[in-house]
Design a protein around this nucleic acid. Structure first.
Length: 463
RNA sequence: UCCGUGGUAGCUCAAUGGUGGAGCAUUCGGCUGUUAACCGAAGGGUUGGAGGUUCGAGUCCUCUCCACGGAGCCA
């Protein structure tokens, strides 16, 4: 007899009613009486459990009552509807085969655990309600992103994980080397001789695929990347990880407005897709993780995102009369407290802040006609802060070169990037979406460590 | 890196400087429809580590490790 997935039992219950079925999975709990008992079984295919009823007619009845949490079993039985009970149906077992018993010291109990504790058992936490829901949503959200871009003709580009350019400029990098760190080859000046290293030069893990992505956008028009990204920042916050996943679309013949339009459409698409395809998981988050999550998400899916300029944001903050820890002044970067005030207090929905002063933004962002600001836009959302950062790119070779000089960078390091402007350059725009950050927003989980299967953060690379 | 909070049973948490407890989990027993089942009993501790003050330290002091939260950095 073939095994049926619990998801199918729930989705097509009529088809199985009164029929003999086989299910397999891990025990969440056993409640036994003298002559009969109940098992809550989760088979991994579905958020909900299926209730198994068993009695002393089974020759291994006594053995089954003693099974501890997370033992794995295969059950044959008849599916019966139970309209008056909490669960819609249950399986009356005719045979229960024990595949793997679980030690009584199984660390996941039938009670609420702190997320901190669950992080210490990252190999077992996907067996809990919360984490099974988070990681099923993670998978569906990733698919939604691919679906969104593929449906619009974007080409999925795999940009390198190991990069030879130290000029991506988005943060501290992890060095990649095969040199013997106990006996590093030196040059005559005493510096590390990277010509002896695996690639014959210094290499690092990528902090962004954007520069490579631009090369492909200027050939395939609309592209996106979706892959791991690494930042060696010594960050200790709920929203930073050393290894995370990022989506970086890049569009040729596009301006800042085009980027914001597609980004807004994308965020709404992901929300709608996940709500439709993970109803049980989302219901759980709405009930137990973030009350009113549905209101928040529906509000985002059905409203236009606000769009204000940096200059307007500064005015709003100045006029607010709020005492900020960091005073606001045109020219300084907005602090987290400022961003939160704007998105959480003023607009109460996602906000694009555009046209930042050039001195606080990256060299590749397109200089506006005022000569003071660049065509950048960050998307701020309540509770998370910055979820997307992007810009129109500087396509004018001479302007780009002088920006590189201004910022004290070396032209030679960007030779191929500059050539993209030399050979048929055009205006183009793109952005970076932090995948974990949008997952946090979707699920209501407040710590990035709880939306990555095995999180890597400063000081922690367990599992 | 800076600031703050915390570390007590497997887990979640109590304990005025004076005999370290509870709930859940575990083990054993009871119970004929349970729903984080229920009822009864038992076992379970180097109070993160080192040093100090004190007749006496989980509690006070110094140092240290770790975790969490916030800031910076950013996605």
């Amino acid at each position: 007899m073939t095994t049926t997935l619990v998801k199918n039992l729930y989705r097509e219950t009529e088809k199985f009613t009164g029929k003999e079925v086989q299910v397999s999975g891990w025990i969440r709990t056993v409640r036994d009486s003298k002559t009969f008992g109940f098992i809550e079984l989760n088979d991994g295919s579905f958020f909900k459990n299926v209730q198994i009823v068993f009695d002393e007619k089974l020759d291994n009845f006594k053995e089954i009552t003693k099974l501890s949490v997370s033992s794995s079993i295969v059950v044959n039985g008849v599916l019966e509807l139970t309209p008056q009970a909490k669960q819609p149906f249950e399986i009356k077992a005719t045979k229960i085969e024990i595949h793997g018993t679980s030690s009584p010291d199984f660390p996941l109990q039938k009670k609420k655990h702190s997320f901190e504790y669950l992080r210490t058992i990252a190999h077992l936490r996907p067996r809990s309600n919360t984490f099974s829901a988070v990681f099923r949503v993670r998978s569906v959200a990733a698919y939604a992103i691919h679906k969104f871009f593929q449906e619009r003709g974007f080409v999925y580009v795999h940009t390198p994980i190991i990069t030879g350019s130290d000029c991506e400029g988005a943060g501290e990098m992890f060095r990649v080397t095969t040199l013997d760190l106990n006996d590093v080859p030196r040059t005559e000046e005493g510096k590390v001789d990277t010509s002896k290293d695996f690639f014959g030069k210094e290499t690092n893990l990528t902090v962004s695929g954007q520069l490579n992505g631009e090369a492909y956008a200027l050939a395939l028009r609309n592209i996106y990347t979706f892959g791991p990204t690494f930042r060696a920042e010594n960050s200790h916050t709920a929203r930073h990880a050393a290894e995370f996943w990022m989506i970086e679309p890049e569009m040729a013949f596009a301006e800042l407005e085009d980027y914001m339009d597609i980004a807004e459409e994308m965020v709404k698409y992901i929300i709608t897709y996940v709500m439709e395809n993970c109803p049980e998981e989302m219901e759980f988050f709405n009930t137990f993780i973030e009350p009113n999550l549905f209101d928040k998400l529906n509000n985002v899916a059905n409203s236009d995102f606000a769009r204000i300029t940096y200059t307007e944001a500064v005015e709003i903050l100045k006029k607010s009369g709020v005492e900020f820890q960091y005073p606001v002044e045109w020219g300084i970067d907005l602090q987290t407290e400022h961003e939160r005030y704007i998105t959480e207090q003023v607009f109460k929905k996602p906000v694009f802040v555009t046209n930042y002063p050039k001195d606080i933004k990256a060299f590749y962002m397109r200089l506006n006609d005022d000569g003071k600001t660049v065509a950048a836009a960050d998307l701020l959302v309540p509770g998370i802060g910055e979820i997307i950062g992007g810009s129109q790119r500087e396509e004018r070779l001479d302007v780009l070169e002088s920006r590189i000089n201004e910022m004290g960078l070396k032209k030679e390091d960007y030779w191929w990037y500059l050539e993209l402007r030399k050979y048929g350059g055009t205006k183009h725009a793109g952005y970076g979406l932090g995948f974990e950050r949008i997952l946090m927003y979707l699920t209501g989980m407040t710590n990035i460590r709880d939306v990555i299967p095995f999180p890597r953060t400063a000081g922690t690379a367990e599992f």
